[in-house]
């Protein structure tokens, strides 16, 4: 950087076109933007912790409840709705138990490399459907059949394939019973994340009332 002042004595560029000015610009712009990003990151972090007050990312025990997805006029987008108790597999879990189950599901989804066919929250590959609202998909028929059908499918997706005319079948990931339960819990929890209205216009499968009634 010693040569910065080399041709100061000749008719060098104006200050606003000088090497020195732009070096400072580069440093300050980068530092400034990085600072803003760090501040936003800190704030976002506190907001998206599972179970944080914002409600954007629900606590893991949300899997004890019925979950809906409906249009919110104030926010002009679809948002998840947490309904009354409807425990997954009929068994109400504590927050710690629920977290452990969802965690097992997420580990399984990573370990079986699901993201290189499916998308999660819209990120991943485009060979298979998005899983953001898989729990709510009308393809499961209705609320009563859902857990049974999901388990059946995940245990043997080749035999139970429904390819809707594409011939694209899901290979058998050979999940253990516990992994299947984990994956379903993970999908149920995922469907309750507030994703700013993505996907829009989604139709939820037929299920019971979302009114919490006198419960809370």
């Amino acid at each position: 950087m010693a040569e910065a002042s080399q041709d100061e004595d000749t008719s060098g560029p104006e200050w606003w076109a000088s090497e020195d000015f732009w070096r400072k610009c580069a440093i300050f712009v980068t530092a400034g933007m990085a600072f803003v990003l760090v501040v936003l990151t800190y704030h976002t972090h506190t907001v998206i912790l599972a179970g944080a007050e914002s409600g954007r990312v629900p606590a893991y025990s949300v899997i004890n409840h019925r979950i809906g997805y409906a249009f919110d006029d104030d926010r002009n987008m679809m948002v998840p709705v947490i309904g009354p108790l409807a425990p997954l597999f009929g068994e109400e879990l504590s927050e710690d138990e629920a977290r452990a189950l969802v965690d097992h599901g997420k580990l399984t989804v990573q370990a079986r490399n699901c993201m290189n066919c499916h998308t999660l929250l819209g990120n991943g590959a485009y060979y298979a459907p998005d899983l953001t609202k898989a729990w709510l998909d009308p393809g499961w028929g209705n609320e009563e059949a859902r857990e049974f059908l999901m388990t059946l499918f995940l245990k043997d997706p080749v035999a139970n394939a429904r390819t809707y005319g594409t011939n694209r079948r899901m290979p058998n990931p050979e999940l253990t019973d516990e992994e299947v339960r984990g994956v379903i819990a993970y999908l149920k929890w995922m469907s309750a994340i507030d994703t700013n209205g993505f996907p829009s216009g989604f139709t939820v499968l037929p299920q019971g009332s979302l009114s919490r009634g006198t419960e809370s």
Partner: peptide, 24 residues
């Protein structure tokens, strides 16, 4: 100049990946 322009727009351009993943 390029560093200033790239980092000036690119660092916070990160935000276009944070539309739909549960972030505010």
């Amino acid at each position: 100049i390029e560093v200033a322009l790239m980092f000036g727009s690119g660092i916070l351009g990160l935000g276009h990946h944070y539309f739909w993943i549960g972030t505010p």
